[in-house]
Design a binder for these strands. Structure first.
Lengths: 248, 248
DNA sequence: TAAATAGTGTCTGTAAGACAGTATAAA
DNA sequence: TTTATACTGTCTTACAGACACTATTTA
């Protein structure tokens, strides 16, 4: 209870915000999910100008009482109709895009987030359009990135999201966030192959990942072949990292 | 509201910004430089409330016509008095901090940046206080992080900045940004040791880094001992990475 | 049985870690 | 010379990559 604390209290009580540049803040989402060994991203079809009818990342304004990450959670539910109470989702901040002219309407800074949805590898979560969009659907990422088809700077953001995920998978088990809590080694390897757009030798992958995972002791029901062990992820760092094969 | 009828050009000409939450955007800086084998960061002493007389990261509002990165450049010059025309500086975005109550005065989102200043390892660039601060000075990072001494959430930001730099040094030559364009292997190793707060075996370090650097053919003048080769950095990725020794 | 998948064994080449040895300069 | 620093050689261990092999299930 020093005199400084008291005077700071007085200062704040009488504080009137000074002028500062008017910049709107949005939270945008790069949403990833894997099906059929292909990485997909959730995109909305824009209902209005600018970039009308173009594909865009889901997102929207950060509210006055929420953090950007909370806004990303809320927007993910609103814009895709996903029930996040049911579906495990991993959200982390990606980067912030602040070029003054990135939105022709007004000054908007966008805090982009990476969102990973858990799937069994066969079915994508069903998504439906929110208020601002005319449609919401899944799109294969690697095909999409060959064409600069997205609104605003969203192609850049999507590429940054893919790069972040690709890199982080080398030294963490974050790839497991694209799978159910318990998963087989083959499921995990399929996620790596989908995100990296490569094929990996199964035997060596198993040996490398085994110490990073927790064996549940349970076995998966196999359609054919030996039943696979079910693992859960840990937060251990992979050291040395699992190197992404360089493209030849 | 019949967006169908309007072209995008007409739409934008008649566009009036809708209400959006009022959030101020600032660019803050984690500025690093190495001297005497110790990593230092530039901090300002706050002149006013809140957190009066506490240490804080340099930074300020993003202007209406500049990106956050441009604002970071400008603020670095303004708040430290550094002549960035003379001094090579590397700036990259770190993360954005958006907790609603992180500034007691008003809603402020801060885009934090990592700034690396080149030094010869013996002298830190001289810095002087800008308008908002009563002083600006260098502080040893690892000592500082033991005590949560900074204003706002700046201790978190500083720690995130250190983590980013530490990690990136494993697989890039970004550490060279803390040195002049041409540097010796020992200088570079000293940077690694300062940032990671470890000691590294000189021989193995040389062998590992050699293929990542460009040999200028020139030699440094040595006070004693054999003259060291002068290298320049490349943008090659270190593969496999140079692992940071885990703390025992 | 055959077919399919899971997981292990084994060999080879590369590189990290430890550390000794040699080379090149200044005092 | 001595001393200090810069590098290189060498040995051991670890592990990635390649790929064959065995084990375990379903049909």
């Amino acid at each position: 209870m020093s005199p400084e604390a008291k005077s700071e209290k007085e200062f704040l009580a009488g504080y009137k915000p000074k002028d500062y540049p008017s910049i709107a803040l949005t939270a945008d989402l790069v949403v990833f999910a894997v099906t059929g060994a292909v990485l997909h991203t959730a995109l909305v079809r824009r209902g209005g100008h600018p970039f009308k009818d173009a594909l865009a990342l889901p997102g929207g304004f950060v509210g006055p009482q929420e953090s950007a990450e909370q806004a990303a959670h809320r927007k993910l539910a609103e814009e895709t109709g996903l029930d996040l109470g049911q579906l495990p989702v991993h959200i982390e901040q990606l980067a912030t895009y602040t070029e003054p002219d990135r939105d022709p309407r007004m000054r908007v800074a966008s805090v982009a987030h990476l969102a990973l949805l858990a799937t069994d590898g066969h079915t994508l979560p069903e998504i439906s359009a929110g208020t601002d969009a005319s449609a919401a659907a899944w799109h294969p990422v690697h095909e999409l990135l060959d064409s600069d088809a997205l609104a605003f700077d969203h192609t850049t953001i999507l590429r940054d999201g893919l790069d972040r995920l690709s890199g982080k998978m080398e030294y963490t088990t974050v790839a497991a966030r694209l799978l159910p809590a318990e998963f087989t080694m083959t499921q995990l390897r399929t996620v790596y192959e989908a995100v990296w757009n490569v094929t990996l030798p199964a035997g060596n992958f198993t040996r490398k990942m085994m110490p990073q995972l927790e064996d549940t002791g349970k076995k998966a029901r196999a359609a054919a072949g030996a039943p696979a062990a079910l693992f859960t992820a840990t937060d251990r760092h992979i050291h040395p990292p699992l190197a992404k094969p360089r493209v030849e």
